[in-house]
Design a protein around this nucleic acid. Structure first.
Lengths: 306, 306
DNA sequence: GCACACTCACAACCTAACCTTGTGAGCACC
DNA sequence: GGTGCTCACAAGGTTAGGTTGTGAGTGTGC
């Protein structure tokens, strides 16, 4: 649960813009509010933090050291918020985008927002008008149908088999890794392997019911007799923390623990007899390359990250 | 700039809690608002997205597929917001924490909030009362002074030399990497090396003025004749995107491009005659181990990630 | 069969946050 | 000394968001 000291997203954005422009008024103009409103918002934030964030002078404002600290933290929040924004924008149905795409859930959840933000940045940088993208999120089979029927120009699917009649290109892999803390018994084993049966029978640290990773894990282990979770947490960060502290094994998205694995905070365990990896493909109808225009740009963008 | 479809942080939190509890009323109770308020907030969000997020029934609510998608995105925003919250809470001066610490800017910016969130999660999980931490962010020399004078129980510093009279333990490394796109001339070189002078004289892709990575880079290159940036962008994601697209070299935090390097989207360049790596240490006064209690827990936590 | 507990929704009212307009004061440059 | 920039203070209006009160539908237990 979030504390009461968290500023508004727009307030965080304002602070970042103030940092860049060096002026409350200029930042206000950029965000389309009055200078007075900006001034007041910053004051509200300062009350939350308890320290001045902006050093005002009669010819501009710059951040205090505390302010720069907060901006760093705010940056991360805003990066994530930007992806959320891109996702929601692509989801909105009111205006039909110039590019209609469909994507499997995993891709829509973890990868597409980042691609959309990146594509948009690239286009803006090139002086192009950003493409409006309309996304449909559904399962891979349905995505293939939509592409085949011509309802969408581009699809993103997971799974090994190529949908018949469609061309495809690899755009990434999605992998759920099983990890334990470095002092866990499994981490001591020579080859760090366990069987799928053992994993299923072991109480795990999991996300709350309904979360994406948990759903994937449960599906993969559905046929095996399972144990009840040892701990149920509401964020990936909390899961990583608990596992590192030795609470038990967990399955988490590979991208979320890359740092932890590199630093030894977590240890990866190979699970035999269980495939938690999926190849992610862009698919389209027609020629050997995606349709000219934004669709091709998006695929190229995504493929570069694969 | 953020679009107008971005829900409030508290609204995102509500959605996440609804997903967990399966009930608007229960979620409302958990967040300390009335069921009607929660209902209204969710409706506001649905108006923003343009699609139903929650499937209401007379015996509970569960998320629609769209809702689950939004929750995934919201999760990331909230994770970052949680770190921001932890940072701000530690910054607030009104109540003196049970643990006084000081940290260099880099550590305070990039690592401490995560550690605080993790420590708190660990303590809550163990049934302990979470430690209130009061953080001071300043430069490494001043941190050492504060620890030596006994003003703080624990310090976090960067730099190779151990402050005299203090004990220390490695808690991580901070590294700025110079990267280029795979098709950049530097990437073609056999050993992928350039000199610090060459780097300084090359137009780079940079974050906006005042950002952390840019400051570090400018300090490191301060003594050399420099070129004006080729592109100035407001997020790390945008910088990575531009570099991958071939806009030019950039210096970015190692953690931010680990994925890109692994996948070949970006290529790392070694810069001779320039040290962009710093060892990060926890320091304290007295015995060979940090003071018993939360200070020791925090160091242990941090060290596990090193 | 009917009360009870639980779900969510609608309506009226209130409050408080936030934004705008209008104004004033300090500083720099010409 | 004007002009243009900076930010701050004050007064007013709008609106989002909250609470209270109520109602309707569904499952459970006696």
């Amino acid at each position: 649960m979030l504390g009461s000291h968290v500023p508004d997203l727009r307030a965080l954005e304002l602070l970042v813009v103030v940092a860049r422009t060096g002026s409350l008024g200029a930042a206000a103009a950029e965000l389309g509010i009055t200078q007075q409103a900006a001034s007041s918002r910053v004051r509200t934030m300062e009350a939350l933090v308890g320290e001045p964030l902006v050093a005002r002078s009669k010819r501009g404002s710059e951040l205090t050291p505390t302010g720069e600290l907060v901006v760093q933290w705010a940056d991360r929040v805003l990066d994530a918020a930007q992806e959320l924004d891109a996702g929601i924008t692509a989801l909105r149905a009111d205006r039909r985008g110039h590019l209609d795409i469909a994507a499997s859930l995993t891709i829509a959840e973890h990868l597409l927002p980042g691609w959309l933000v990146g594509l948009r940045a690239q286009q803006v940088q090139r002086g192009q008008q950003p493409t409006e993208v309309k996304m449909t999120a559904t399962n891979s089979a349905r995505v293939a149908e939509l592409v085949e029927a011509g309802d969408v120009a581009l699809g993103f699917v997971e799974g090994p088999e190529a949908p018949r009649g469609l061309r495809r290109r690899l755009v990434g892999t999605d992998e759920l890794l099983v990890v334990v803390g470095p002092q866990h018994p499994w981490a001591m084993r020579a080859r760090r392997r366990v069987s799928a049966e053992t994993l299923a029978a072991t109480p795990l640290v999991v996300r709350e019911a309904g979360s994406g990773t948990r759903t994937v894990l449960e599906r993969a282990l559905a046929d095996l007799p399972g144990a009840t979770p040892v701990l149920e947490l509401s964020s990936t960060a909390a899961v990583r923390a608990a596992v590192a502290a030795g609470a038990g094994p967990a399955a988490v998205g590979a991208h979320a623990v890359r740092d932890d694995l590199a630093t030894g905070r977590l240890v990866r365990i190979t699970v035999t007899g269980l495939d938690l990896t999926r190849r992610l493909h862009a698919v389209w109808k027609g020629g050997p390359h995606p349709p000219e225009g934004p669709a091709r740009e998006l695929v190229a963008w995504a493929a570069r990250r694969s």
